[in-house]
């Protein structure tokens, strides 16, 4: 799919980029004003990865996500109001206040959920791929994970099984250069992180993770390969997290200059806007319209979510197990 040169695709991508950015900014603001509880992991600066990846997917394709998962949810099509309601501890939230930021899933878009455990979603995505393969559908599962996940055993085991059975899975690493504070360059002495794929007998690809079209194209190729029964692909999308890992992060492991240089010269949204303007696909006015629509959507979502009833402890014990419905055969 040509995104940069196709008007409707460009508008869709730009809308997703801004929805993610504005959602994260709204969360940061609400948290800062004491209206939001817990912690949060913001994906500002990384918006191009979910945006490009999910534009290569169908609605019935699966994704698994991470603790830094708001962008994946939004790009796959989640409802902003239900997401915001969850973060605001409302009964109308995706998890009815039981999961919060790290556990939003959306059955309607086959989003199997964010995950509070690093690499927790890797074998789960492989299992969704196994399910698709066994059911004879051509669905694909995209596993979003960070560079930190590359140190986990779960990553290894999920990829081993997916490779053995040629499962329709795309392992998509958002390399934002740090696993919390650990530099991925230090942790993994590889020329490129995607070289890791060689050890598993699957293709490994590195892309500019702040380029929507590049991410999309790499995922589109991997998805085509997966749908054709040729097995998994490992993609590393190079990007950067502007904010700290979570609210406790004082950024002691990186310099202010480093953060500033990414913000100023490698903002994925500014880059996308520049590319669609240069290509003549959208005008400044078009871009402003998208921004305004996103601002209005998000403002409405926050207002409605804030006005929704709070989550209550009633029924919590009954919510632990799904109700049994008798003999399945």
């Amino acid at each position: 799919m040509q995104i940069v040169t196709d008007r409707s695709a460009a508008i869709e991508a730009l809308g997703t980029l801004w929805r993610i950015r504005r959602f994260e900014e709204a969360v940061e603001d609400l948290y800062g004003r004491g209206m939001m509880h817990g912690t949060m992991h913001l994906s500002i600066g990384q918006e191009a990865v979910p945006t490009g990846a999910c534009m290569a997917l169908r609605r019935d394709d699966y994704i698994t996500s991470t603790h830094r998962g708001h962008g994946h949810c939004i790009a796959k099509g989640a409802d902003l109001e239900r997401m915001m309601a969850e973060l605001l501890a409302k009964d109308t939230g995706y998890c009815r206040g039981r999961g919060g930021s790290m556990h939003i899933a959306d059955a309607a878009t086959n989003n199997l959920g964010a995950n509070g455990i690093v690499a927790g979603g890797v074998p789960i995505a492989a299992g969704a791929g196994l399910s698709a393969q066994m059911r004879g559908t051509d669905q694909v599962a995209v596993c979003f994970h960070g560079d930190g996940a590359m140190g986990e055993g779960a990553w290894h085991e999920g990829v081993v099984l997916a490779a053995m059975w040629k499962l329709p899975v795309v392992f998509l690493c958002e390399n934002n250069l740090y696993g919390m504070s650990m530099s991925s360059a230090k942790a993994f002495p590889l020329e490129q992180l995607s070289d890791r794929a060689n050890g598993y007998g699957i293709p490994g690809v590195t892309v500019d993770g702040n380029d929507v079209q590049a991410v999309h194209d790499a995922v589109e190729t991997a998805v085509a390969r997966a749908r054709a029964g040729e097995g998994p692909t490992f993609i590393v999308a190079e990007t950067y997290r502007w904010r700290g890992h979570s609210k406790s992060d004082k950024n002691l492991y990186r310099t202010r200059d480093e953060i500033e240089s990414w913000r100023e010269s490698n903002d994925p949204i500014a880059r996308f806007e520049k590319s669609v303007l240069e290509a003549g696909t959208l005008t400044e006015a078009d871009i402003q319209t998208v921004r305004d629509e996103v601002r209005d959507d998000l403002r409405g979502a926050v207002q409605r979510a804030a006005a929704a009833p709070d989550a209550t402890p009633e029924g919590l014990l009954d919510a632990v197990f799904a109700p049994t419905t008798g003999a399945a055969r």
């Binding site: 890797v122 074998p123 492989a126 196994l130």
Partner: peptide
Amino acid sequence: DRIRDTTISELGIVGLGVGAAMTGMKP
């Protein structure tokens, strides 16, 4: 296909079971 040998990967085995169970299978 239905009696499926895996690698020696307990975390992977259970994890793939979770993913398959979430998506219409009964592993």
